[in-house]
């Protein structure tokens, strides 16, 4: 099985970090994978996106132009990538930042007010990980089990104090109904 994931939003929302977490989760599960960031003139406030491919077979192209799973954290990203999702795919929307619903009937849409949840629960700036928590819950390509180990891979020792809040954000998303 191959899952192609595209994560998109503003620079500064932790788009690349969220992708890195998924990549490390895949690595720990012994899967084949690739992680590819957009590296244009992005900066805080600009657009950023990140392609992650998790597969049981060697990964062909690391570029995700037809995602199975789309995670969007701003309106321009939903506008740009909504039509690219494969029929039957899943779209995860940060509904605190994107007011309109997904326009397609042939994909499953999940709405998580992640940015608001992050502020209300004392994990500001971690809406990205709330979104990922929900993805882990709804998509079968990887499980919640082992998230601590994957988090250790991406939260550097220098920022060890951020481990707990990241884990909390993942749980918030995972438990969000």
């Amino acid at each position: 099985m191959t899952t192609r994931i595209l994560i998109a939003g503003f620079g500064g929302q932790g788009i690349l970090f969220a992708g890195k977490f998924l990549a490390n989760k895949g690595l720990l599960e012994g899967r084949q994978l690739s992680w590819l960031p957009s590296y244009g003139p992005e900066m805080r406030g600009g657009t950023a996106n990140c392609s992650v491919v998790l597969s049981d077979d060697p990964v062909g192209s690391p570029i995700v132009d037809r995602p199975d799973v789309l995670i969007v954290m701003n309106l321009p990203s939903l506008d740009k990538y909504e039509t690219a999702v494969v029929p039957g795919g899943a779209v995860f929307v940060d509904s605190a930042l994107i007011e309109r619903p997904v326009g397609r009937a042939d994909v499953t849409a999940y709405y998580i007010p992640a940015t608001r949840l992050a502020q209300q629960n004392g994990v500001p700036g971690l809406a990205n990980m709330i979104m990922i928590g929900k993805v882990l819950r709804e998509c079968g390509f990887t499980s919640f089990e082992g998230v601590e180990e994957a988090l250790h891979s991406v939260v550097s020792a220098k920022h060890a104090d951020l481990f707990d809040v990241n884990l909390k954000a993942l749980r918030l998303g995972y438990e969000f109904e």
């Binding site: 890195k20 590819l36 690391p62």
Partner: peptide, 10 residues
């Protein structure tokens, strides 16, 4: 090329 340079893989 830029893609292979920027991407992460095991």
């Amino acid at each position: 090329d830029g893609t292979i340079g920027q991407m992460m893989e095991p």
